[in-house]
Amino acid sequence: MHIIVLVKQVPDTSEVKINRETNTLIRDGVPSIINPYDRYAIEEALRLREKHGGKVTAVTMGPPQAAEALKEAVSLGADDVVLLSDRAFAGADTWATSYALSQGIRKIGDFDLVIAGKQAIDGDTAQVGPETADMLGIPFVAYIRKIERVEGKKMVAERLMDEGYDVVETSLPALITVVKEINEPRVPSLKGKMKAKSLKVTAWTAADIGSDENKIGLRGSPTQVVRIFPPTPRGQREILSGNVEEQVASLAKKLKEQSLI
């Protein structure tokens, strides 16, 4: 099997804190990590390779330093990596990202399965997987929590749903996204780390993957971020006044305004 894993380098959002005086993000010392959900995707790819043979290729799109995420994939056992990096990709939303990834995957050529984490922890959109599948013209199955079997050009897997799970059969090649219930990711191996250290990652540019310049980067992105602001500030705490009824009424009003209840 040739399995392609989509990975993303993200800031470790669990390390991000808000400065309560200035209402800005405190980013100091926030490390860049491989998107945690992608570690499950890599692990599942490695397990499929161990079972069925073949190879695992890790693919990412991002700035040059995103090569680090690919090196991590190699340290875990990936055979091959592809970095899509070009200033022209900057500002891509999920549509334009999916377009670039699908072009990159086409250039890689033959594959049986593409695996991605269910979403990235910085954007939390869960859109790049299904959009990439659509652009590649292959079936997509989300939230896989268990791959039951792969037989020839078919795969049977369990898809986590809101009220339980479905057992789904899909033809291959397909793109699936995986949830954390699927496995327990391994730690890297020393040999893998040594291989990763000496690995030279060369980037494929927008031209290398034959992309339409109107479909990449900010220009190719249908959506645009128009405002970024901190959520309800902490620290500017408000002690509610009045008797119990008044306090609770004013609380209810505030929570309702923020759609919290």
Binding site: D93, T94, W95, S98, T125, A126, Q127, V128, G129, P130, E131, A133, D134, M135, F140, A142, Y143, L160, M161, D162, S221, P222, T223
Partner: peptide, 19 residues
């Protein structure tokens, strides 16, 4: 689970933005 799974496919085909 359903909305977030198939909406991206629609947005991709229609070439439009999805938030």
């Amino acid at each position: 689970a359903i909305g977030r799974s198939f909406f991206p496919k629609v947005a991709s085909t229609l070439y439009t933005g999805l938030t």
